[in-house]
Amino acid sequence: MLNRAFTKHFWLMLIPGLVWLFFINVLPMYGILMAFKDFNPGAGILKSPWVGLEHFEYMFELDDSSQVFKNTVTIAFAKMVGNLVVPLVFALMLNEVKNRLFGRTVQTIVYLPHFLSWVIVAGILLDMFSLHGPVNRVLEALGAEPVHFFARADLFPALVVGSDIWKEFGFAAIIFFAALTSINPELYEAAAIDGASQFKRLLNITLPSVLPVAALVGTLSLGNILNAGFDQIFNLYNPAVYSTGDIIDTWVYRAGLINMQYGLATAVGLLKSVAGLILISVSYGLAYRFANYRVF
């Protein structure tokens, strides 16, 4: 246990963060009451009549709910795995490149897409994968039939996950680069003297050293299992791919803001938050256990 004076310091430093958290995250929470009400904007949340669990009952009746839930989890899980494995492999590979200038250049280039918003990236993607776009040109040159990528429900999740990984892997790799640089070079020297090959050194020194970081990143991202990426999908999808591409957030957006079904949209959103809270708690538990990472 740290001494008391020292902890007081910490609490003091926490205040701005807590105030922010209170106003941005806690204060709006009373809006979840809408999920149990027939919301009338004029009367406000508190004066709207209660309807009990009506919205939740309807939500569970819908065939849609399970489909939307399944889409969300599938896409989010695939992204989670991809965004862990690809940056890790990339970092390990680039770490072996001895030309530092080349390594840094590559690193800078691959993390650039992270700073573009999805509106822009989606526009580029729609063009690239359109019927007469570059991707189909290449397919044609190879003698294949052109593929109507964004009309194919079976391909849509792959496009979403793939493009998300493409956009984010460079940035996600940064944490692995940091872990790699903290490995004691003496280990490599000793291993080299003992006659370990390049690959053996990777397997027995590099990999075990970054594994705790990988485990941490992986478990922390568990909390995002219900966030499949609204910005991205909203800018890419169309009704033809609803069956595999409609996620909780896009559904809530359409229900709430297009069709003005405020209560129902809140109910679905609330359920998502509750599931998210449980998952985050679990992931922090796991992170503590496997990576010794603590928040509380």
């Binding site: 109507h148 009704p239 409609d246």
Partner: peptide
């Protein structure tokens, strides 16, 4: 209560039929 779902059904079916 139910229009968002019905509209989704309609949009999806019609576009898929045309495609």
């Amino acid at each position: 209560m139910k229009w968002a779902n019905l509209k989704k059904l309609e949009d999806e079916t019609f576009l898929k039929i045309i495609l």
